[in-house]
Amino acid sequence: MPEATLARNDATQQRLVHALAQVNQLLLGKTHAVRLSFACLLAGGHLLLEDIPGVGKTTLAHALARACGLAFQRVQFTSDLTPTDIIGVGIYERELGHFRFHPGPLFTELLLADEINRGTPKVQSALLEAMAEGQVSTEGETRPLSPVFTVIATQNPLDMAGTHPLPDSQLDRFLMRLSLGYPDAAAERALLSGVDRREMLRDLTIHLTPADLVELRRRARTVDASTAVLDYVQSLLSASRAHPQIRVGLSPRAGLALLAAARAWAMLAGRSYVMPEDVQAVFPAVAAHRIQIQHGANGETLAAKLLAEVSVRA
């Protein structure tokens, strides 16, 4: 991976660099994952963090929200959570003499949906619908969500008892799926000896504004993708469809998602054009949860295999 060079010619871009550095300070030794989560945010996608508890999923979500200056809400998914709990409810107010809508946690900018697989399919689909549409319809009224509305959902892959795994079709709603994993020895040591993360979170400086994020997203969409890169994306897609260990390959939507993520990744590297390296960097995070695999296979390994098998033509 080439060491990223970031464009320093622009104030917004500059603030983005600072935000990235700050989150990296908080999550030691997770530069790649942090960068991917930023790319996801810049590409306007939602993020699924799949990991065991205690590796910093919540911290990442918090840090992202804080560094990007986004309003933050957290919802702990449980089996008794109802859609109105997240959307909000109309309550009759006697003084006013009519129902007034009390918005739920969904009406925020960054929503952390903790342990999403513990929620019932009903509440899951309510959330996913909101993610897809950018608006919610309740009590006969359509209410728009924030233009930068982003969901970071977490789920615990080990603790499967009493959960409702997200169906494959719903997984598609997330632009990326990430695992943080254990920190390496040095990072863990620094973590142990360092200050409490919660305190650090509080002390984080706000670098970006939601308006900045809108602008950065707009810019990310204008990053050039040459025919060579499009050819490469296409060959990755078709390879996924022909691979013997893959039941259902990548959809055209997955291709668009891959390209959007690669664009954001290239922008983070300070470039105005996408290179195959960018596609490769985001490919496992974007593709692994979208391919339906044969029994006994693993999405991440298969994604890596695909990358090794598809040659990049010069």
Binding site: P2, Q280, V312, A314
Partner: peptide, 24 residues
């Protein structure tokens, strides 16, 4: 031109890895 360069580098014991992007 790139392929020529690649052949030359391969002869110099620096082959491209499977799936490795040209610039990388």
């Amino acid at each position: 031109g790139f392929q020529r360069l690649e052949r030359r580098l391969t002869r110099a014991r620096c082959a491209r890895r499977p799936g490795e992007a040209p610039v990388a």
